[in-house]
Design a protein around this nucleic acid. Structure first.
Lengths: 210, 210
DNA sequence: TGTGCAATCCGACGGAAGTCGGATTCGCGG
DNA sequence: CCGCGAATCCGACTTCCGTCGGATTGCACA
């Protein structure tokens, strides 16, 4: 049988080299875990997972090109038993929800004590989960109406670029009146009064980026 | 006289413990430099500077409560010869400008190779400066009109909260018409067409936060 | 002194934004 | 089959936003 004290093999994915150094130092300082590989992009992460089959993949969500969530989805497509711990600077609740949905078993925020990260890794390896109270609260703040339809998300992203209703109508090939209707629905779902507030809350909830 | 090979004493300020671990590991791995202290807030940074008088203070800008720029200003008030290297996740050009203005001698972005950070520290300690091309470009994108008056910044921050002209007028004790005028000036200075675009560009340039 | 410039303030007009009511399509369960 | 809700679409009405023209203050500089 397996030895219960076998070290936990971790793959580290983060686009900031400095952060990677910190994570690697923290993990390798523990006797029961070790970093087997590291990289800075989602594409490399997929390759490295195939090579090393780590026990846990520690994944940042905001990466250049392909996102961390997409990497998780891709890897879990072929390896449903793969374990993921998300480590990110605190973003909105949408990122968290997407990550959990994609199969992440823990969500740790940069700027927490080292022990939090280590705890999360150990609990996940033991088959458990780990969500800090701050994350749980963010998830609880998701009202049922807050999920937008595909079309509405499309409109919202154009809104966040500062486009007018007429411009949005041109891009989507629909009437300005229709765009206004979508905008109204978005305002209701986000519980805000006008398009500017919609953009602000969408940004801080992570519904759109930049 | 001083020994030219004397190690560079560095104070590290960053609110993310994980990032601090990475920075400390990188610096202490070089024979010519060493971390003498570290902390996660601007207030602690001021105290630690008084205690250790480091050669260089490596400072993150986005900190809880007091900002890194304010910490730089406070310390340089009493120690004009203090050297600062700013290390931050890439924000807008406003942060960069403020930091340079406050007396930072180098600006390094997280997510660059380790050697960049080490280079910056060595050059600054040798009396030089260090600005990555990305930062220089961001500074160059600052048009002369882009600096707003105090009143306009005030209006902009309320804009970014999603307030209407009437609400802003109420908060500032002026007429809605006057608010509209300020908004128009802001739009011109930021070179955008409407308030939503103004909020978006203000956020990505770091003129306002959140 | 006075002239120029920037900041702050206000009122009135045209256009954009948001609300309301209504129509169509599609899928889902009775 | 029919009803029902959700998503998508549109037109007319009201409110708000942004522009324009104009006025005042204060400060710098000749």
């Amino acid at each position: 049988m397996e030895n219960a004290a076998k070290t936990i093999q971790v793959l580290v994915v983060d686009d900031h080299p400095i952060v990677r150094v910190g994570i690697v130092a923290i993990i390798n300082a523990r006797p029961d875990m070790a970093v087997v590989a590291q990289c800075g992009t989602a594409e490399e992460a997929i390759d490295l997972f195939e090579q090393h089959h780590p026990d846990i993949t520690l994944m940042d969500l905001r990466l250049p090109k392909m996102s961390g969530v997409d990497a998780i989805r891709t890897i879990r497509m072929r390896h449903p038993k793969a374990c993921f711990v998300v480590l990110t600077t605190y973003e909105g609740d949408e990122d968290i929800y997407q990550a959990i949905e994609a199969g992440a078993r823990a969500y740790v925020i940069k700027g927490m004590p080292h022990e939090t990260l280590v705890d999360a890794l150990r609990r996940v390896h033991a088959g458990g989960r780990f969500l800090p109270p701050m994350v749980s609260r963010a998830l609880a703040s998701r009202t049922p109406d807050s999920d937008l339809s595909a079309r509405e998300r499309e409109v919202l992203s154009l809104l966040a670029r500062g486009e007018t209703n007429k411009e949005i109508a041109g891009h989507l090939g629909i009437t300005e009146a229709t765009v206004k209707c979508h905008v109204s629905v978005i305002l209701m779902r986000l519980q805000v009064a006008d398009r500017t507030q919609a953009v602000v809350t969408a940004l801080q909830r992570g519904l759109v980026h930049l």
